[in-house]
Design a binder for these strands. Structure first.
Length: 554
RNA sequence: GCGCGAUUAGCUCAGUUGGAUAGAGCGUUGGCCUCCGGAGCCAAAGGUCAGUGGUUCGAGUCCACUAUCGCGCACCA
C-alpha cells in the first residue's frame, strides 16, 4: 500500500519535471510516515520540503504542483491535502484498508514475510557460552535475542543459519578438568585446598559425584595430568549436553555447533595467521606476533602468538571469522554480552584487514538481566558460583514468559526481569495480555461454531458491514505488521515486534469490550469474525517470530 | 587517564532512522460485569526529553562541550 503510494508520488514528480513545472531534476527517496495524529491522514510525505532548497521555492508551492500531478490515484485515497510547512497528507479509502484483511486471509502464516533479504546468506552466532558451567539468565537473554533476530531475518527473506561457537580450546578446559578432579578427590575422603580460580559451583561437585558412582576410586591411579585431561573431556561433554538440553527446553535449535578446537585441528588458525602475514599486517615485537589492527581503527594492536609460542583467543577468533566468510555468508551477526563491547572495533578492524566490508559483520550487544522477585533484587555472582540458571527460570515462569520478557526491551539496555510478574496471570503481565488476546479470538470462534457459524473464508465478507472507527483502526494496525517485521529485521530489534503486539492486543481487547463480534445480524457477524481472525493470525505470526506460543485457550 | 554506552512522566521503558500538538505499561485517582472468557475495558492527572551552545524550513533524534551513572581498557578466554 505504502509502495503503491510511493510510486504514485515518484510518477508525479517525474511528470512535474517533464512538464517543466519543477526544474532541479532531483529525485530524493520518497518517504512516507504514519503521522502521530489522525487528522494528518494515514500517510504523510515530506518530499516537498526536501526539494525546497534545490528548487528555491516555498515547499507548499512544490507540494501544490505535485498534488496537481497526482490526479485521482485510482481510488487508493479519498483525500489528499497540503498541510503545515508543506506536508502532503494522504487519506486512504476504507475499501483500501479493508483490503489488507484479504491479504492476511490469503497469506495466512506467511503474512508478514517479505523478500528484503533477497535470499542472502546470513549467519547468526549466539549463546556460545563456555562449556564450563550451566547457562545462566544472561545467556538466556542472548539465546532469546539471537533466536528472534535469526527468525526476523528469515521472515525478511534471508537464508539464516544459527551457530553456537564452543570455546573448547585453551586453559579454561584445564581449569574445568582440575576443578572436577579436585572435587572427585575430596569426595573420596581427601581434604585439600580448593583453589579460588577453580569453578566453585555445586554442579562441579555433582558431576564429580557421578564419576565416583561410575568409576569408583579407579581414577586416583592416574597421574594428575592424565586425570585433569580425562575430567576436562568428560566435564566438557556433559556440560555441553546439559546446555543443549536447556536450549531445547527454551525452544532454541542450532544448525551447527562449531568447535574452537576444530579450528586448530584443521590448521585454520595457522592459515589465519599466514593470511595476516601475507597481507603485511603482522609484525613481531617482544617475541610476540601482532596483528596491526590499529591500521583499521582499533586503538591498540593485538597479539596473535604470544612470546611463549601459544596462540591467543584473538588468533582463533580471526580464523573463525575468516572461516565464516569462506563458508559463503554474506552477512555475519555475532551476539555478545555488552561487557564485550570493547571488542567490536578490533573485530571490525579484522574484517577490513581481511578485505571485507566491516558492515558485513554486525555485533548485537546484549545487556545484563537484573533479576527481581516481587520488586526485590535477587543476588547473583558468577564468581562464587551462586547464579540463577536459565533452567531454573524456565522451570519457574515457563518458556513463553521467559522468552517474552527477555525480548521486551532493546537488547542493549539493561532489563529488569521480575519472576513474580512473569508468573502472574493478569493484565499486569504483558505476555499473558498478548496471549490472551489470541485465546480470546479462538474462544469467539468456538462460540460461533456452537451457533453453527464458521469463520468466513476469503471473499465471503461484505466490508461495508465494518462501519466502526475501531474496526478501521484495527485494520490499519494489521496493515503495519509487514513493515514492522521488516524494520525490526533491518535494525536487529525484536523488541519492536513486542511493542507492536502489545498495541494490537490492546486495540483488540478494547474493541471486544465495547462491541459484540457475534451479533444478531449474520452479515455483520461474518465481517467481524473475519476481522477478529485476522487479528488472531497476525498475533500468532508475531508470537512465532519471538518463539512464544499462541495458545487457543488458557 | 582513555574509549564505548546511557540520561524521556513518580517507576520501568518506547519513540518508525530529522517531521506537525511527546507515547505506552505500572503506580495514583475515579468509573464499567443480565452480555462472545472481567485473565478484560473506559477516563483523568502526570513532561524544561540531564544542561548549555550549534547545524536547518524543522532536533527527543545529528554535532560540540559539561554533569551524573554504567561498562570496558591482558602476550586471559
Amino acid at each position: 500500500m505504502k509502495n503503491r503510494l510511493k510510486s504514485h508520488l515518484e510518477q508525479a514528480l517525474r511528470q512535474c519535471y517533464a512538464q517543466g513545472r519543477l526544474h532541479s531534476g532531483e529525485v530524493p527517496e520518497i518517504q512516507l510516515d504514519v503521522p502521530s495524529h489522525a487528522e494528518h491522514g494515514d500517510f504523510a510525505c515530506n518530499v516537498a520540503m526536501l526539494l525546497a532548497r534545490a528548487e528555491k521555492i516555498a515547499p507548499r508551492k512544490i507540494a501544490e504542483e505535485l498534488m496537481a500531478a497526482l490526479g485521482e490515484g485510482d481510488g487508493l485515497w479519498r483525500k489528499v491535502e497540503i498541510a503545515g510547512p508543506g506536508f502532503i497528507n494522504f487519506f486512504l479509502s476504507n475499501r483500501c484498508w479493508y483490503g489488507v484483511l484479504d491479504d492476511i486471509a490469503r497469506a495466512g502464516e506467511d503474512y508478514g514475510r517479505c523478500h528484503l533479504g533477497a535470499g542472502k546468506k546470513v549467519q547468526v552466532e549466539f549463546v556460545s557460552a563456555n562449556p564450563t558451567g550451566p547457562l545462566h539468565i544472561g545467556h538466556g537473554r542472548g539465546a532469546a535475542t539471537g533466536d528472534a533476530v535469526a527468525s526476523l531475518l528469515e521472515h525478511a527473506g534471508y537464508a539464516v543459519d544459527r551457530e553456537y561457537y564452543i570455546n573448547d580450546a585453551g586453559n579454561q578446559m584445564n581449569t574445568l578438568g582440575l576443578s572436577l578432579y579436585l572435587r572427585y578427590r575430596e569426595l573420596l575422603g581427601e581434604t585439600l585446598d580448593f583453589p579460588a580460580n577453580c569453578y566453585q559451583g555445586d554442579y562441579i561437585r555433582d558431576l564429580a559425584a557421578e564419576v565416583v558412582a561410575s568409576e569408583g576410586r579407579r581414577l586416583l591411579d592416574l597421574t594428575e595430568e592424565q586425570a585433569v585431561a580425562h575430567f576436562a573431556r568428560f566435564g566438557g561433554e556433559r556440560i555441553l549436553a546439559g546446555i543443549d538440553d536447556d536450549l531445547q527446553a527454551f525452544g532454541v535449535r542450532f544448525d551447527r555447533w562449531y568447535s574452537e578446537q576444530s579450528l586448530y585441528d584443521r590448521g585454520e588458525v595457522e592459515r589465519g595467521i599466514e593470511l595476516v602475514r601475507e597481507r603485511q599486517l603482522a609484525y613481531e615485537q617482544d617475541g610476540a606476533l601482532w596483528f596491526r589492527t590499529t591500521a583499521f581503527g582499533d586503538d591498540k594492536d593485538r597479539v596473535m602468538v604470544r612470546s611463549n609460542g601459544a596462540t591467543t583467543y584473538f588468533a582463533s577468533d580471526v580464523a573463525y571469522h575468516k572461516e565464516k566468510f569462506d563458508r559463503g555468508y554474506d552477512l555475519v551477526i555475532d551476539v555478545w554480552g555488552a561487557d564485550h563491547h570493547g571488542y567490536v572495533p578490533r573485530m571490525k578492524a579484522v574484517m577490513t584487514g581481511l578485505g571485507r566490508d566491516p558492515e558485513d559483520l554486525q555485533v548485537i550487544l546484549v545487556q545484563l538481566v537484573n533479576l527481581l522477585r516481587g520488586g526485590q533484587q535477587v543476588a547473583m555472582s558468577t564468581r562464587s558460583g551462586e547464579f540463577v540458571t536459565l533452567r531454573e527460570v524456565i522451570d519457574e515462569v515457563g518458556r513463553d514468559a521467559c522468552r517474552f520478557f527477555f525480548l521486551m526491551r532493546r537488547s542493549d539496555s539493561q532489563l529488569d526481569f521480575d519472576l513474580e510478574l512473569a508468573k502472574q496471570q493478569s493484565n499486569d503481565n504483558p505476555v499473558f495480555y498478548v496471549q490472551y488476546a489470541h485465546a480470546r479470538v479462538c474462544s469467539i470462534n468456538r462460540a460461533a461454531q456452537e451457533q453453527g457459524m464458521q469463520p468466513p473464508a476469503l471473499g465471503e465478507v461484505d466490508f461495508d458491514r465494518l462501519v466502526l472507527d475501531e474496526e478501521l483502526v484495527l485494520a490499519k494496525r494489521l496493515a503495519q505488521f509487514p513493515e514492522t517485521i521488516a524494520a525490526a529485521a533491518q535494525s536487529f530489534a525484536p523488541h519492536r515486534v513486542v511493542f507492536y503486539m502489545q498495541e494490537l492486543a490492546a486495540q483488540f481487547h478494547s474493541y471486544y469490550n465495547r462491541n459484540r463480534v457475534i451479533t444478531d445480524d449474520p452479515e455483520t457477524t461474518r465481517a467481524r469474525l473475519y476481522l477478529a481472525n485476522c487479528v488472531r493470525i497476525v498475533l500468532r505470526n508475531a508470537l512465532r517470530v519471538l518463539g512464544v506460543s499462541a495458545p487457543e485457550r488458557m
